[in-house]
């Protein structure tokens, strides 16, 4: 019995750790247009359509790259900070000179959490991440 209680307390502690995402806030207003981040002379623009961006709808994910040399694969990895939401990746295809697009879905979390993180993976390396809220 004592062992069971200890295991239970450990699980509770893990659950408590998972709630610490409350401190994170969006760094991108995805509902008003594409968000841009730049570093070392490179630039990534990330947008989702249609706007406002809603969970449980078919969405177009668009990435525009500036000063990237010949990117082979562009993937948008969707996750919820500090909450395991499983594997959800959208593979993007070239649609213009520097523009890549793909279709995907952001699932709704019945807990009411809306904060999502889109990590842009270029050639198997996470280049940039965007934090944004979705509408339900």
């Amino acid at each position: 019995m004592k062992k069971s209680v200890i295991i239970f307390l450990i699980l509770l502690a893990i659950a408590a750790c998972y709630n610490r995402e409350a401190n994170l806030s969006p760094d991108c207003n995805i509902h008003s247009g594409a968000c841009i981040k730049s570093y070392n002379g490179k630039e990534i623009s990330f947008g989702i359509e249609p706007m406002p961006v809603k969970a449980m709808e078919s969405l177009y994910f668009r990435v525009k790259l500036t000063n990237y040399k010949n990117p082979q694969s562009i993937i948008v990895n969707l996750s919820m900070p500090k909450m395991s939401m499983g594997y959800n990746q959208v593979s993007l295809e070239k649609r213009g000179l520097d523009t890549y697009e793909g279709r995907g879905i952001i699932p709704a979390c019945p807990s009411g959490r809306r904060l999502w993180k889109a990590s842009i993976i270029i050639n198997d390396k996470v280049e940039e991440s965007f934090l944004f809220n979705v509408h339900y």
Binding site: S84, G86, Y87, N88, I105, P107, A108, P110
Partner: peptide
């Protein structure tokens, strides 16, 4: 059938 984000993601895959 209880709505669950993790299950939704698995179903999307």
């Amino acid at each position: 059938f209880i709505p669950c984000g993790l299950t939704y993601t698995a179903l999307i895959t």
